[in-house]
Amino acid sequence: MHEMALSESMILIIEQEAVRQRFDRVKTVCLEIGVLSHAEPEAMGFCFEAVSRGTVAEGARLEIQRPPGEAWCMDCAGTIEIARRFDPCPRCGGHQLQVTGGEELRVKELEVV
């Protein structure tokens, strides 16, 4: 479950920011996990809870935004929305798609005290 490694990276980012921006406790972590990213929000929640124990983010709540999957259809020459990587273009039914959005894995902001 690579969400464990991703959660550890999140803690690293948060602890660096805790020093830089001077806060002692995180109440909320706002995350972007794109619909086409390789992380599962459910698993992230579980792993983050485990990994955050004993850190400034212990007990913090995850607020997860899910940017939609976006792709450029080479046949239609336009941007379309897809829910999964193997979805066809909703306009032409083709698969000549280049993913342009929805792969985000970002810590956006923190609510701190």
Binding site: I13, I14, E17, Q21, F23, K27, T28, R106, V107, K108, E109, L110, E111, V112, V113
Partner: peptide
């Protein structure tokens, strides 16, 4: 309540 801190990482 708490303050918001921008991270964007």
């Amino acid at each position: 309540q708490g303050r918001m801190v921008q991270i964007e990482q």
